[in-house]
Amino acid sequence: MEAWGVALIKVVFIWAWTLIIATLMTWVERRGSAMIQDRLGPNVCGPFGILQPLADGIKLFTKEDIVPEKAKKILFALGPIMFALPAFSAYAVIPFGDKIVIGGKEIILQVADVNIGFLYIMAIGAMSVYGIVVGGWGSNNKFSILGGLRSTAQLISYEVPFGLALLSVVIIYGTFSLREIVLHQQGTFLGFLPNWGIFKQPLGFILFIVTAYCEANRVPFDLPEAESEIVAGYHTEYGSMRLGLYLFGEYVNMYTLSALMVTLYFGGWHIPYIDMSKFLGPVAYGIASFLVFFLKTCFFLWLFVWVRWTVPRFRYDQVMSLGWKSLIPLALLNLFITAFLVQLTI
C-alpha cells in the first residue's frame, strides 16, 4: 500500500513538474528568441514577463472553441489529446535523480524503473505521430493534411536512425533500464574523461540529437508546421485549448528528449570527478542529484531554442534524403563499430 502511495506522489510530482517546465519553456522560447534577435520579448506580465505563460494559458482556455464545419468532429477532437498524452507519459521511465531517503525509506527518483525503459520510450515516442496525423486529417484542410503527411514520413524515416543510435548505447551498457545506464556512467573513462556516454558514443550522440530534433518537430525539421509554406501545418484549423495542447505537447516532448539526452550521453545526475553521495546527507543528495540532472536538461532545452533561431528549415525531400542516405548508413556504421569494439574489450 505504501509503495502505491509513493508511486502516486511521484507521478503527480512529475506531471506537475513537466507542466511547469513546459509552460516556462514557452516563456524561455519567446524571451530567448527575442534576445537572440535584438528584441525584448514579453516583459510586461510579472518580473521579466515570467507570468506571460499564465496569461497565454488563460487566453487559450477562455477562447472560443471553433470546430470547422466540414471537419471530422471525432478525429478533430481526438488529435490534440493523442498528441499530448504520449508526450506526458514518456517521462515515466526517465530517472530524474538518483534516490532520496525519507523517513528511513529509500525512494528511487524515477516513476517506474522498467527494465525495458528503452522500448517504452521508443513506443510512446512513436505514438505522438498519430496525434498529428489524426489532427491533420480530421481538420479536413489541405494544408493540415500536408503537414500530417510530412510528419508521418519524417517520423517513420527518423525512427530508424533514432532506434539504431539507441541500440549502440544498449550494446555498450548491456541493459535496457535507463537507471542502470546512468549508474554505469559514474567515474572516469580512459583515466581522464568523465565516464559519460558522449565520449563512448560521439557519433551516436550526433545522430541522436539530430533525430531528436526531428522527433520533436523542431527547426530545422519543423516541416509539419512550417508556417511559411503550409500555414501552420497540422494545427492550421485548431484554436483555443486544442491548439494549446499541441503547443504544450511539443514542449513536453522537448523536455523528455532533453532528459533522455542527459540520461544516455551526459551522465544523468553525475557530476564529473565528484561523487556527491560521499559528502552529502541522504536527503540533500537526493535533491542535489535532482538539481544536477535538471540543470543538464536545461542546457539541452536551451539548445533546442538556440538552434531554432539560428538555422533555416529543410525542404521535405532533403529531410528524407538526409534521413535515409546519411543518417541510417551512419547509424549502422556506428552500431557496427560499437559492436566490434565491445566485442574486442570483452
Binding site: G32, A34, M35, I36, Q37, D38, R39, L40, W306, V307, W309, T310, V311
Partner: peptide, 16 residues
Amino acid sequence: IVKGLGITWKHFMKNF
C-alpha cells in the same frame, strides 16, 4: 551551424 550558433550567442549575451 556551430558558427551560426556563435553569432546568435553573441547577440543573446549582448541583449541579455
